[in-house]
Write a protein that binds this DNA or RNA. Sequence first.
DNA 1: GAGGTAATTGTTATGTTATCACAAGTCAAC
DNA 2: GTTGACTTGTGATAACATAACAATTACCTC
Lengths: 168, 168
Amino acid sequence: MTDPAAPAAFRPHDHARCVAGTLALARRVAAERGLRLTPVRHRVLEILLERHAAMGAYEVLERLAEEGFGHQPPVAYRALDFLVTNGLAHRIQRLNAFIACDHPGEAHHAAFLVCSGCKTVAEIPADELRATLDSAAAATGFAIERASVEAVGLCPECRAQGRAGQPA
Amino acid sequence: MTDPAAPAAFRPHDHARCVAGTLALARRVAAERGLRLTPVRHRVLEILLERHAAMGAYEVLERLAEEGFGHQPPVAYRALDFLVTNGLAHRIQRLNAFIACDHPGEAHHAAFLVCSGCKTVAEIPADELRATLDSAAAATGFAIERASVEAVGLCPECRAQGRAGQPA
DNA sequence: GAGGTAATTGTTATGTTATCACAAGTCAAC
DNA sequence: GTTGACTTGTGATAACATAACAATTACCTC
C-alpha cells in the first residue's frame, strides 16, 4: 500500500529526519542568499514542518505566543510572508493556510494535493503542468507571473480505509 | 493585438450579447435540471456577469441591498454558493471572490487567468491540464475530487500598455 | 384549494482571516 | 558610537465567512 512514487507526506517515514533535512536545507539557502532567518522566522518554519499539513496563521500565532513571541496577528503573518516570499513555505489558497516547502532552494513549480480525509497536504512536482499552463496562457496573450494548482481529494491511506472526505 | 485564440474577457466584444447569451444558457440549464433560479440567485448571476472580473461577496451584497434584497452576508453567500454548486459560477480562491461561469452546463475543467493590471479574470479550458494532474496524482495513490488552477499575470492589453501588476 | 413538507429567504450574532499604522528595538556598516 | 535599514511588538480595525433560528414561499398530495 506504500507507493514508492508517493511523496513522503503519503508514506510512513522517519519524520524527525525529514524535518532536520529540510530545515538544514532552508538554513543553507537562507545563508547563501543573505536572508535573515531570525528566531521567529526559524521557529515558524519549524512549526510548519511538524506536520505534512497546512496550518492557519492564527494557529501558528498561538504557538508563538506560548513560546514568548508576540501575540498579535502581524507577528505570524510577517514571518509567514517572509517564508513564502523566499520560497521556504507555500500558501495553500484553498485553506487560507501555510505549509513548509519540501525543496527549498530548488527552482521548481509545485502542485498541492490536499486530503479531505486526514488534512495531509503533499507537494508534487508540477514543472510539466506549469509548462502546459504557460503555453495555454501564452496562446491567449497572457503572461503568467505565478500560478497555484491545488487539488482536493483522498490520499492513499484514507482511500484504503474507506474514509470519506469532509466538505471543508 | 486581438488574438483570436483569446477568451472574450481579453478581447473587445459586444458585452451585452455576451451577457445575454450566458444568462440564457444558465436559465436553460437551470430549467433542465429543475434548479430554482430565484430572483436573488438570478440577480446575483447578472451582477457577476456585468464584468469579466471577480466580485467579492460583500460587493455583491451591497448591490443586492440597494435593490431591496436582504442586507446580511448570508443573503449573498447563499446565492453565490448555489451558483457555484450548480456550475453557474466559480470561486477564485486567490481573490476570495466569484465570477460567472462562461460555459454553464458544459462539463469542463477550467483554469483561471487573473490579470494583476486590470483585474480581468478569464476562464480557459483545462481538460488536458486536469488529465495531467489526475495522472500525476494517481501515481502517488491520490484521488482528486476537485482542483483549482489559478494564474496571476498580465493580460494582453495590460502587457501592450506596459502596465505593471499590482501586488494584490 | 387545504394541509403538509421541504426549500428559500431574512435577521441577529459571531467566528475567522488579514492588514494598517506607529513605536520600540536590533543589526550592520561606516 | 551613530546612522540607516530592517525587524519586532502592539493596538486597532478591516475583510471574509458561517451558525442558528424565525418567517416566508413553493410545491406536492389529497
